[in-house]
Amino acid sequence: MQLVKVIGALTLLILLSGCSWFGGDKTIPDIPEQILYDDAMSALDAGNWSLAIEKLQLLEARYPFGRFSEQAQLELIYAYYRNSEPAAARAAADRFVRLHPNHDHIDYAYYLKGLTSFEEDRNFLARFLPLDETQRDPGAALDSFESFSILLNRYPDSEFAPDAQRRMQYLKNRLATYEIHVASYYMKREAWVAAANRGRYVVENLQETPAVPDALAIMAESYTKLGMHDLAENALEVLRVNFPDYVIRPFSPQRFDLLYTATFGLLGQIEPATPARPVNPDRLRQAEADGERNTSSGRRSLLHRISFGTLGSDGNEQESGELIEQAQ
């Protein structure tokens, strides 16, 4: 019986120490705070963002109340940003703001958060391919704009304020153009109320952007379609006063008769859309004169239509000949 107890105790001792024999009891050596911080800074200087993140996380875990703790949290935001981890960078920035609302460098946290979303909005393909960023989802752009706005409102004297202001102007133009794309889509779907609301949003919230005159034109056309002629005239008046050289174009879809659709544009005609008048009356008279000339000279013969332009004449040749004769 005594022998059984001894064997059992030895077996238990062997089982308990087995983890250490197979390396399961490994412990990270106790590294001084200064050395950890220096290693993290060396990794940042070398551009080794993954190693820098590892060292900064270890520094914060081992010494949460150390003298390098707050600086390590700031550096961690930057390391996440450079390592293309936008979600982690924003989370680290929010955590720093929550833990240190009165820190001397809290403006840097807001700046990095906005910069992270700004770079996320400009994705890899958009940098190397001619893609229109204004037609993509503006979620990251909105986050970036909000972060930069907080930075400018709370810390206008920050050293990062000038750069944030320039980026905000770019984002403002991008968001305004996106709203115009959405409003144009609604116009094509004849959703006049939704289109008018999008245009009004641009006019009220995104002023001083190139999209404002288009927004006013969309408002005028939408209100006209809805029968709200007073609101349409008000939009036109604002457009006339502030953008006298802007020429309104119709945003609603063009309609084609059955013969035009059946012959793929060879026969038939486009149904005239609601006439859109230019803001400047002189431009209106000039446009009407140009339209009359184009109408008189733009008639195509039947042979020209059937042969897809390879045979016959389109009327422009005759006009070109007349112009040459006049020049001679």
Rank of each mutant, 00 (worst) to 15 (best):
E221Q: 13
D290Y: 07
A46T: 08
L3C: 10
M1A: 15
L142A: 06
N280Q: 09
A40Y: 00
Y246Q: 03
Q135T: 12
V182D: 08
E33Q: 11
F251S: 02
Y81F: 15
E54F: 12
D45E: 14
H105Q: 13
R90E: 03
G24D: 12
A176W: 01
Y155F: 14
A196L: 05
N48I: 10
D214H: 11
G114V: 00
P130Q: 07
A276I: 01
D25N: 11
D104N: 08
L51K: 15
A235W: 01
R198M: 04
S144P: 04
D38T: 03
E208D: 13
G312M: 05
F148V: 01
E325N: 09
R305A: 11
A87G: 03
E70W: 00
A235Y: 06
V182F: 09
P86L: 02
H103A: 14
P156W: 11
E190Y: 01
R122V: 02
T274R: 03
E190D: 04
R189H: 12
G139N: 05
A91L: 15
Y223H: 02
V212T: 04
L267F: 11
R299E: 10
Q318P: 01
S69C: 05
A88G: 09
P130T: 07
V212L: 07
E204L: 12
D104K: 15
A93I: 10
L259E: 14
R305N: 15
Q57A: 11
A287S: 14
L51G: 15
L171I: 15
M168I: 07
A93Y: 09
L36V: 11
D257M: 10
S301C: 10
S20G: 13
I28G: 09
S296Q: 14
N197F: 09
M187H: 00
D143S: 06
G139P: 00
A164Y: 01
G268L: 07
Y108T: 08
D314Q: 07
H103E: 04
Q254I: 10
Y78T: 06
G8L: 15
G315N: 07
A140I: 04
F128S: 08
R285Q: 15
A109L: 03
D121R: 01
P210C: 10
A276S: 06
S17I: 11
N83V: 06
Y246K: 07
D314H: 11
Y260N: 11
P253F: 04
I306K: 03
T295C: 06
P250H: 03
L267S: 09
E221A: 03
R154N: 14
A273S: 08
L59E: 01
H181L: 02
A141P: 09
A196R: 05
P253C: 06
S301L: 13
G199F: 00
D39A: 11
Q326K: 12
H100G: 01
A92N: 09
R200C: 04
A109G: 06
P275E: 05
R249A: 05
